[in-house]
Design a protein around this nucleic acid. Structure first.
Lengths: 255, 255
DNA sequence: AGCGTAGCTTGATTAATGTCAAGGCGACGA
DNA sequence: TCGTCGCCTTGACATTAATCAAGCTACGCT
């Protein structure tokens, strides 16, 4: 499948492509192609050699890992996000598996093209460094979230983050099934239910995928969100429209 | 304090400096200075603005984070390691605190110099990207270690990693106090003790900081180390002598 | 409408980990 | 030599989360 003009436009606005010249951009995405996958498709297994940088344009992708019969969700990506950038830069194997949660549309950029562009244009290389640094910091936040908070606190902060991202209203819609959310928050579906019950004391009312906040202040007092862990950017813009300051990109949903 | 010739030599061999030309190297470290700190010095608090890339030349540094009266060790660095590279690249604030565990010697490189060098030389920029990508992957490993293994399994794998790094003999010396080790492994000192007791069934015998392995096979069967989580590079070389393939750098000890 | 299934919830139980309290052991100094 | 202090260990207990087992509910299907 050949890449059409309009396909590249959809990623031209990504943080680390935005500043690149047209020449460098063309070099970086040369050989890229667009592909659609049904829900539940395994794009990549941990340990696989990584030949492409993936860009999720539509749908949702879960990054996970397993060991000894256990497995865990590390992040859930929404458009527009790149993933396995680190493995591409190092031309190394994947440390995480990637599975589509919904029917998804992905742009696959040959790793070799990307690396070549990085080596030929310092500005582009720097932009990729910034992207990587942002991903790194997202992971640091994720680790802090898990090591410093118990499951109910993680849920409370997740809800506040969603609220901020969905416009700060008193009602939000959970973007995933509850069992997926549970895995993302590092708990079982059973415990997620119980955590929601506990938060009813803070005015959290759940009805299906809708969550209503009746006592936001009480919830905030309980959750104690921190700019050093959570990513409350107080702006209602689209994901695409962000400046190329620190982006949470992939790991964004993992908080 | 002015940087002397021999001081720069000590970092010239760092993964992302080794490939740089002398000119770029000089540009990157311009304005750098060397400083000694006693044990227990706070070099950086989370939230602080980061002006320097730190390079630990001697001693030991703990990276940690806190929230709501809890706090946690994220990594313990040994020479030669850089830290807070991501914050420097983004010219952003620190997400972790850094405290010296011992009397330590640090080289502090102005962030501005580093960023300028990255922007002027694509090869150097690429090398920094590789370093960042390695750090990222180290964190992914750390998250997997914590989410997929219980505390005893983490200890067992830590011991095997140390064994590999200390030459594969049947006896190792723990590099840190046990309470520091406990924090690093994400558990309390009490539980570390109990985890050691459990591992006696796998032939682990502890005497102070010395640990003897009487049944390595049994331990390996229990720990099930994985190249996708642990960093068992089967080579007895010095940390400095590594090729600039993926380095674990800072996060190395966090496994 | 009648059923079946998937996802969610609830309760009871077990496992893992943290907390509190007490005691041992060794290093160091008076 | 004897305290003393820090670190480690051990035991009893509390808290947190995972597991197991029903049941519930909404939705799709025939």
């Amino acid at each position: 499948m050949v890449l059409r003009i309009k396909d590249t436009d959809r990623i031209r606005d990504l943080a680390f492509f935005r500043t690149a010249s047209d020449e460098i951009f063309d070099e970086a995405v040369s050989g890229a192609f667009l592909q659609r996958f049904p829900a539940g498709t395994t794009l990549l297994m941990e340990g696989d050699t990584v030949d492409f940088l993936y860009v999720l344009l539509d749908g949702a992708v879960e990054l996970g890992a397993g060991w000894k019969s256990r497995d865990s969700t590390l992040a859930i990506l929404k458009p527009v996000s790149t993933f396995i950038l680190a493995a591409v830069v190092l031309d190394s194997d994947a440390l995480m598996s990637a599975v589509t949660l919904e029917r998804s549309e992905l742009l696959m950029i040959p790793g070799e093209s990307l690396r070549r562009a990085m080596k030929s244009d310092p500005a582009f290389g720097f932009a990729v460094s910034q992207e990587l640094a942002g991903c790194y910091r997202g992971l640091v936040r994720s680790i802090k979230n898990h090591k410093l908070r118990d499951s109910t606190e993680r849920l409370a902060n997740y809800l506040l983050t969603q609220r901020a991202r969905q416009g700060g209203n008193d009602t939000i819609t959970l973007p995933h099934e509850k069992r997926v959310l549970a895995s993302l928050l590092g708990m079982t579906p059973e415990n997620l239910s119980r955590a929601f019950s506990k938060l009813s004391a803070q005015g959290v009312a759940v009805d299906g995928a809708k969550v209503r906040f009746d006592k936001v202040q009480a919830l905030e007092r309980y959750a104690r969100p921190s700019p050093l862990i959570d990513n409350h950017f107080p702006q209602g813009e689209s994901q695409l429209g962000k400046a190329h300051t620190e982006r949470q990109q992939g790991v964004l949903d993992a908080l």
